[in-house]
Computed example of a mutant assay.
Amino acid sequence: MTDLKQVAQQAGVSRATAARAFANPEQVRESTRQRVLDAARSLNFRPNLLGRQLRQQSTRLIGVVVPSLLNPVFAEQLQAMERTARSQGYSLVIATTDYQPEREAAVVEELLRQRVAGLVLTVADADRSEVLAELSQERTPFILAYHEPQRPYAAVAVDNRQGMAMATEHLLGLGHRRIALVSGPALQSDRSERRFAGYCQAMAAAGLPTPPRLELASHTDADWAELAPLLERHAPTALLCTNDLLAISVIAELQRHGVPVPEQLSVVGFDGIAMGARLEPSLCSVMQPLQSLGAVLVTELLALIAGSPIHQRCLPCLVRPGTSAGPLKEPCR
């Protein structure tokens, strides 16, 4: 069986250098690292990284908790995270909660059992989370994604309130005054709550009433039986959705039931996923810098692991125009 010593001999390096090429690749010159990897490949050698890391009571694993892998916003974030983590010799271990707060404790506990070096978490409500309160007493560093916590937790987010206020102002600039907001269950997302607050802020600044928000059973799937009463009661000319998948689903339901978008009803999302720009009508949305957010999350977490102090960062967002939001016409009846 091939061992590390044979790999080192074929690569023309010491055994210690070969070991570093696998365990701490950032500490080895790229040309040297490539010779070691080429030698390992030709000799069919695979190092037992996890076993060695566990013996050292640490791993180069980052645990990541997201609500769902079905939402492209998390897929885009994870792609950037994986690329950044890999460049620093780390790997991701991913778990989902299906937007269920009660699953968070079990998911985090399972990742801790795997001795992850740190955690990146998206939870339901960061400031009220018992899981985070307990985790802050543990030795494993963690950072929050998308949250803007009042508690002293490390976090990287966008300004959810300001982002939705910008989206509301965009619709106001198109002449809309009857604007309603559609979301999933409020208690399952503090991001949704902040976005609702931004909507209320912009409507109040314009001197307009804010109709009650429509809470759907799902964060990503619209139901015509729930949407129809809103249209009947408030006759909105525009809808703000708290995420892009929900906005896409809303548009599909509207058009399926004879309500053209944006001719009768404009729709705006929040996330800026790439898929939205390729649809027809193209989705008007608040763009989160997902690639930057994913990279910064890993960079900040690795700094925490190295002993740096806690930081909270808020990245800029902007409204991406799209043909799903048009100038005011006759309200939908």
Rank of each mutant, 00 (worst) to 15 (best):
Ala11Glu: 15
Gly12Met: 08
Gly12Lys: 14
Ala16Ser: 14
Thr17Phe: 02
Thr17Ala: 09
Thr17Pro: 05
Ala18Leu: 13
Ala18Ser: 00
Ala18Lys: 07
Ala19Phe: 05
Ala19Lys: 07
Arg29Asp: 15
Arg29Ala: 12
Ser31Gln: 12
Arg35Pro: 10
Arg35Met: 01
Arg35Cys: 04
Ala39Glu: 09
Ser42Pro: 12
Leu49Lys: 11
Gln53Glu: 14
Gln53Val: 11
Pro67Gly: 09
Asn71Glu: 09
Pro72Ala: 14
Ala75His: 02
Glu76Gly: 15
Leu78Met: 06
Gln88Lys: 15
Tyr90Gly: 05
Leu92Ser: 15
Val93Phe: 13
Tyr99Glu: 06
Tyr99Trp: 05
Gln100Ile: 10
Glu102Ala: 07
Glu104Asn: 12
Val107Gly: 10
Glu110Cys: 05
Gln114His: 14
Arg115Gly: 13
Val116Gly: 04
Val116Ser: 06
Ala117Tyr: 14
Ala117Thr: 15
Gly118Tyr: 04
Val120Asn: 01
Val120His: 00
Leu121Ala: 06
Leu121His: 13
Asp125Met: 15
Asp127Cys: 05
Ser129Glu: 11
Gln137Tyr: 07
His147Met: 07
Glu148Phe: 12
Gln150Arg: 08
Tyr153Ser: 10
Asn160Leu: 03
Met164Ala: 00
Met164Thr: 03
Leu171Asn: 06
Leu172Glu: 13
Leu172Val: 12
Gly173Leu: 04
Gly173Glu: 07
Leu174Trp: 03
Gly175Leu: 07
His176Cys: 09
Arg178Ser: 10
Ile179Asn: 05
Leu187Gln: 13
Ser189Pro: 03
Ser189Phe: 07
Arg191Glu: 11
Glu193Tyr: 01
Phe196Gly: 04
Met203Thr: 04
Met203Gln: 08
Ala205Ser: 01
Gly207Trp: 06
Gly207Asp: 12
Leu208Ile: 09
Pro209Ala: 00
Pro209Phe: 07
Ser218Gly: 13
Thr220Arg: 11
Trp224Arg: 10
Glu226Leu: 11
Pro229Ser: 08
Ala238Leu: 06
Ala238Pro: 15
Leu239Gly: 11
Asn243Glu: 14
Ala247Arg: 03
Gln255Ile: 07
Gln255Lys: 01
His257Gln: 05
Pro260Tyr: 00
Val261Ile: 06
Val261Leu: 04
Leu265Pro: 12
Asp271Glu: 03
Ile273His: 07
Ile273Val: 15
Arg278Val: 12
Ser285Leu: 09
Met287Asn: 08
Gln288Ala: 01
Val296Pro: 00
Glu300Ile: 02
Gly307Ile: 01
Pro309Ile: 02
Pro316Asp: 05
Pro316Gly: 01
Cys317Ser: 01
Leu318Gln: 05
Pro321Phe: 06
Gly322Gln: 03
Thr323Ile: 07
Pro327Asn: 02
